[in-house]
Design a protein around this nucleic acid. Structure first.
Lengths: 128, 128
DNA sequence: CCCATTCTTTACGTTAACGTAAACTTCCCC
DNA sequence: GGGGAAGTTTACGTTAACGTAAAGAATGGG
């Protein structure tokens, strides 16, 4: 018994914790193109991977349009060089944004520590 | 000559690279409350700090409502303990999200390296 | 005094990423 | 064969965070 070869929209929705509406929306936007059996959508393992990539893109703050570009990279079709560079630029931007976020979080934590201290002090004051 | 004591909306907009509309919107949402000289808004250094905090919040993915909460923390007014805990929870969530993003970026980079390699290979192939 | 800036209020418009609802077909089970 | 459960299409609704436009007041320089 090897891996599952096809998936229904409901199965994928459950697995990735999104609604079927969401998955259909991605199809509408041209990010996935499942085959059909009659009316019903049949998703392949490749489609499943595509969904995974979309969701990872979302976590990274990519728009659906950007994720679509990104996913296009995985189907090598001649000269990816240009798109590859564009993509690497975006990754680099995210990296820098991440670093900024880390700095921001650190600053916020320092202020939190300070606020906490003031809070503790105020409570001690009340105990006297 | 010490630090500037007041700012116009335009000055702040320029300094933080946002539009005046944006700053007025924040006021509308109750995040800043500049004083007035007639109709005209006059911003204090404290207002300026508030703006900074809002923008940092944005960089961290906080909504304006969340940033508003956060900013409330800086005016100690009795029992901050509850809000302090809530805020720390949010910080923790952001931290975890950041770590997930870092993992995602690493995975993406590996795939990029792979794509790049395939790209180089394809070009070598063409040279023969 | 006039003109260009900078300010003001009011209010409708926009975008992304879905949510929600209606109305219908298909399939499976007992 | 009745009735869920899961699938389908179509289409209008929603939210956040501003954008954009209109129309008018105030101010400072030449």
């Amino acid at each position: 018994m090897t891996k599952k070869q096809t998936y229904s929209i409901g199965e994928l929705a459950r697995e990735f914790d999104v609604t079927t509406r969401t998955i259909r929306f991605y199809e509408d936007q041209g990010l996935v193109s499942p085959s059909r059996r009659g009316q019903t959508r049949i998703y392949s393992p490749a489609d499943r991977v595509t969904l995974k990539l979309i969701l990872r893109g979302k976590r990274l703050g990519f728009s659906l349009a950007e994720s679509k570009e990104l996913i296009g990279m995985y189907q090598p079709q001649g000269d990816n060089r240009h798109q590859l560079l564009a993509l690497q630029n975006k990754i680099q931007q995210r990296r820098e944004q991440l670093e900024q976020q880390l700095r921001d979080i650190h600053a916020l934590q320092l202020e939190l520590d300070d606020a906490e201290q003031r809070c503790v002090d105020a409570m001690k004051e009340l105990e006297n």
